[in-house]
Each structure stands twice: as C-alpha cells, then as structure tokens.
Write a protein that binds this DNA or RNA. Structure first.
Lengths: 123, 123
DNA sequence: CTTGACCCTCACACTAATGTCACGGTTTAT
DNA sequence: ATAAACCGTGACATTAGTGTGAGGGTCAAG
C-alpha cells in the first residue's frame, strides 16, 4: 500500500502520515524508487494513532507504548497506565482553571448586566 | 516612570511591556533620548491588562475595550459583553471536550486495571 | 513521447505571549 | 573618563501538528 492509498482509506493527510513516521510511529519499508510501502496492518495502526491523539496524547507519549498496544490488548501494556494518569491529572487541572475563569467571567458579566439595567431604569 | 521601574512595580517583564505597546495596549511618550516615559496611571493600566490576560482574553480583544475600561467602570463598556459571551462559549466547549476525554480515559484506565488484577488472580 | 497522477525531500507558515541574545546608545556614579 | 546599570531595536526560539509550495523524480495510459 502506498501513502496515497493509506491517506485515502484512513482520512489522514499524507503530510500527517509522513510526520508520524518522523516521530517513530510508522515505519514503512521503502521500494527501490524511494516510495513508502505500507503493510496492510498500517491502516489499523493509523487509526490507533488517531485514537490516542484524540485523547490528547502527544506523538512522543504514543511512541512510548504503541508497539505494545499493537501487539497486545491495551490492558496488557503497563507503560500506558502512567501516561493515562498524567494526562488525567493535567486534564483535571485544566478543567479547574477553566471553571474558575468561567465563574469569574460570569460574575463580571452579571455585574455589567445588572448595572446596565439599573441605568436604564434611571433614564 | 521608565520601563524598568514599571516592570519592577508591576512584576511584568520589560519584554512584555514592549509587546503590549506593540499591540496597542500601552502608549508611553518618548523622551528626547528615545526612552519610553510612562505616566503614573500606567501601573494600574498594566495590572488591568494582566487581569484580562488572566481571563484568557487575547491582546487583540483587550485592545478593543481597554480604552473604555480605563476611563469608565467596566459596566459602562458595552464592547466588553460580546467578548465575555464569546469567551464563555469557548470555555464551555473546552470544558465539554475535556470532560469527554476524561471519561474516556477513566474508562480505559478502569478496564486496564480490572484486567490486570484478574490476570494476577490467575497466576 | 507526452500528460497526468503519483511520489520524494526540504522548508516555511501558523498561534501567542514571552524569553533571550546581539549590538549599540545613554546615563549616572565614582 | 570609565564602569555599571540603564535603555533602544531587531530577530530568532518556544509548542505541536498540520498546511502548503517549490523543485524534481516515477510510472502508467494514451
């Protein structure tokens, strides 16, 4: 399978496929003419990469356990647990920050709206 | 007040003060020697900028209402309401996304831990 | 043999605020 | 007069994944 086919059947851009290779996530062989040749398993592999990217993991983190996940069930890969834990912690912090900003914004919004309506009554 | 003093008394780096100027948030006059001279109000102005940056607004957004906020009470500035609304919408989307990723991660984590403990019992 | 559809590499752009370095002028105190 | 402490501009780096374009090789069908 050449890169164009893999791109079409996965919906991932050629640019991204080459980037994943550069990050060590894909290792196609090269034909004599220099073209990348992907095994049939590459399709699933790309979908797996996308799955983890959508979980907010970096290519570097994914590179750390991808080889294991592709051979075994995810639950067999101990490498993945600390990554999940770290990501969860990070997400919790982000949510907390966003919620505090949200409260702050809502309060300010409320003050403005109240004051504006009281000004209207005075006019 | 020169830039070093303003930096010291606000805790904002000189680099950032110059950047704010470039973004139209600060407009110090220039002395004959080319040095920036800030008015005494600049200190409050910088604190105000920081406040809005910490609410996650961009310098461009801040530039849109800063002049008003510095002259009037915030509640007098209608320009600010749509910015707050937009930011709130954005934050809600981010929180939603983070929470769905969080659930997903927690489920996966749970599966792994359950399966691992069941494997231990088999050994 | 030419055209079109592939493929290759390299490299710059993007976002946004900040850090940092180079290079050079100014002011102040000794 | 010289050194230290300021100030100025300009430019590159950072993050991480992706888009995009240049310039050029390959291959298959007509």
């Amino acid at each position: 399978m050449k890169i164009g086919e893999l791109s079409t059947c996965t919906g991932v851009s050629i640019r991204s496929l080459r980037y994943y290779e550069q990050q060590g996530l894909l290792t196609p062989v090269r034909l004599e003419n220099g073209y990348r040749e992907y095994s049939p398993f590459a399709e699933e592999q790309v979908r797996t990469i996308q799955l983890y990217l959508n979980l907010g993991l970096s290519t570097e983190q994914i590179a750390g356990f991808l080889h294991c996940v592709l051979k075994n069930k995810e639950s067999f890969c101990e490498e993945i647990v600390p990554v999940y834990r770290e990501k969860l912690k990070e997400i919790d912090e982000q949510i907390k920050l966003l919620q505090s900003i949200k409260s702050n914004l809502e309060e300010r919004m409320q003050s403005i709206l109240e004051e504006q309506s009281s000004q209207e009554r005075e006019e």
